[in-house]
Design a binder for these strands. Structure first.
Lengths: 101, 101
DNA sequence: CGTGTAAGGAATTCTGACACG
DNA sequence: CGTGTAAGGAATTCTGACACG
């Protein structure tokens, strides 16, 4: 369920290396609500491999001239779709479950 | 090929949290050649999720009274087996390749 | 708007050593 | 042998601000 891909364990320095993005950019995308790292007790940011992928994605869109708020909107649309998918799936499961009785 | 599991990107603090082992222990197992983290430019250790699993494994064996040099021997035996497996596999592939001609 | 940078401080990690056993 | 700890320093990261545009 929670695979390595989603464990928030990577520091910003390594994320910077992995993505090629400056730490400044990475922090800025967080400020713009595009990425949501965890924090250690001390306050240092921790990212997952999934975050690293998302960051590369974000960087590509910005390079294509998209603005952060547009990217955020797009992400929210995706989340909504995922929500809908989840709801539909749950609906189907419920239906199937009822039929079993 | 190189999946998330083998990317050395996790600091020792997080590894300590993930494994429940003290940093002292983690460093000591390295000293005893049981684990091989990468190093950042600055010299800080970086571990993979595979390393985290190995550390838990090592800790269990030590808890069972095994000594570090025994664990190391065991690991080397495994590596040798893997080597043999690799060699055999390569041998079979070679044989199959020859037959195709 | 998105990003670089210098600034000062705080959190993280490193090594070598002493301790116990 | 395996592990804890205090010590001092170095590497890493943090925030808020100024700059450019």
């Amino acid at each position: 369920m929670t695979s390595y891909k989603d464990k928030k364990v990577i520091g910003i320095g390594i994320v910077s290396e992995l993505t090629g993005l400056s730490e400044r950019k990475i922090r800025y995308y967080e400020e713009r609500k595009l990425i949501f790292p965890d924090r250690s007790k001390g306050g240092t940011r921790k990212y997952s491999f999934g975050d690293v992928e998302r960051l590369v994605d974000i960087a590509n869109k910005i390079e294509d001239g998209m603005q952060t708020f547009e990217i955020r909107k797009e992400e929210m649309r995706k989340l909504k779709k995922a929500d809908v998918r989840d709801k539909m799936l749950r609906g189907q499961l419920n239906a199937a479950f009822k039929m079993r009785k």
